[in-house]
C-alpha cells in the first residue's frame, strides 16, 4: 500500500481495544478448539476416506465451483448494469440483489421450491417442456448455492466499478477502442483484485451453504448431499464422522482463504 501510515511501527494497542479484540477472537477460536478436542485422531484417516465423506467432498467442490462460475457469468454483467446504467428503481433492484444476504437460507430454499419446484411458477412449465426437474438434483444444489452466494460477487464488483477511476476508460474510448474492448482491456484489469476477492467470497459462501440446499434440493448421498448436509445427518448418529467431515471443511476453507489472503484483502 502507498499510504505511509501503514508502514510505520505498529502502535502499542490500548488495553480497552485489546481485551474486546481478544474476546472476539476467542469467539472464533474456542469452537474450533472444541472441534479439535473431539476429533478421533486415530480413526481420522479411515473416516475421511469413507464413501460418505468423499462423495460429499466431491459434490461440495462441484457445486461450490459451479455456483462460482454461474455467478461470474451472470453476476458481473449484473454488477456492471447496476454500477453504470441509470434506470428508475435501481436502488430497489440493488436491494433485491442483496436480499439473499439477509434472508435465512431456509426461506431462500422454500422460495426456490415455490418458483422452480415441480409445482412452481417456472418449474412446472419447465418440467413439461424439457423434462428437467431441479429439486433433488445436483443442478438444484448449484442453483441453491448460486442464490445465496452470488450477491457477494455482485456487491463487490459493483463497488469496484463505481469507485474506479474512469478516465482510463474515457482515454481508451477516445483512442478508438470499442466499448467491448474497453471493458475487456481496461475495466476488467482495473477491477481484477475486487473480482478475485468477490469470487473467493462467493465460493466460500457456496461451500458452506446448508439451509437453502436441504430445503430445495433435499439430501441424498452422491447427488445432493454436500459436506454441510453430511455433517448435519451424521451428527445425529455418527458423531466421529461428523467431526471428521467438519475438520475437512475447516481445512479446505482455511487453505483457500489463507492461500488467497493476499489478493482477498490488501495486506500491509
Amino acid at each position: 500500500m502507498t499510504n505511509p501510515t501503514s508502514r510505520r511501527a505498529s502502535p502499542r494497542p490500548p488495553i480497552g481495544l485489546l481485551l474486546p479484540a481478544a474476546i472476539g477472537l476467542a469467539l472464533f477460536v474456542v469452537p474450533l478448539v472444541g472441534l479439535l478436542a473431539r476429533t478421533p485422531w486415530a480413526d481420522l484417516l479411515d473416516l475421511v476416506t469413507g464413501a460418505v465423506v468423499t462423495d460429499a467432498l466431491r459434490l461440495s467442490l462441484v457445486s461450490s465451483l459451479g455456483a462460482t462460475v454461474v455467478s461470474l457469468l451472470l453476476g458481473v454483467p449484473l454488477a456492471w448494469v447496476l454500477a453504470r446504467v441509470e434506470f428508475p428503481g435501481r436502488s430497489l433492484v440493488r436491494g433485491l440483489v442483496t436480499l439473499p444476504l439477509v434472508l435465512p437460507p431456509v426461506v431462500g430454499g422454500a422460495a426456490l421450491l415455490f418458483a422452480v419446484g415441480r409445482r412452481g411458477l417456472v418449474g412446472g412449465p419447465l418440467e413439461r417442456m424439457t423434462g428437467l426437474v431441479l429439486p433433488f438434483s445436483t443442478a438444484g444444489v448449484v442453483l441453491a448455492c448460486t442464490f445465496v452466494a452470488m450477491p457477494f460477487l455482485v456487491i463487490t464488483v459493483e463497488g469496484a466499478l463505481r469507485t474506479m477511476d474512469r478516465r482510463q476508460e474515457d482515454a481508451a474510448a477516445t483512442l478508438g477502442a470499442s466499448r467491448w474492448t474497453v471493458l475487456r482491456r481496461v475495466t476488467l484489469p482495473v477491477i481484477a483484485p475486487s473480482l478475485v476477492s468477490g469470487l473467493v467470497l462467493t465460493w466460500a459462501r457456496a461451500f458452506g451453504e446448508f439451509g437453502a440446499t436441504v430445503t430445495f434440493a433435499g439430501n441424498l448421498q452422491g447427488r445432493t448431499q454436500t459436506l454441510p448436509l453430511a455433517v448435519f445427518v451424521a451428527l445425529e448418529s455418527q458423531r466421529d464422522t461428523a467431526v471428521a467431515i467438519s475438520l475437512v471443511m475447516v481445512a479446505v476453507s482455511l487453505a483457500v482463504l489463507v492461500g488467497l489472503r493476499g489478493r482477498w484483502w490488501p495486506t500491509s
Partner: peptide
Amino acid sequence: PGGPARSVPRPLVVA
C-alpha cells in the same frame, strides 16, 4: 487518514 486512531480515547470508552 487510514492510520490507527491511537490517541483517541473514544474507542476505549465504546469498547
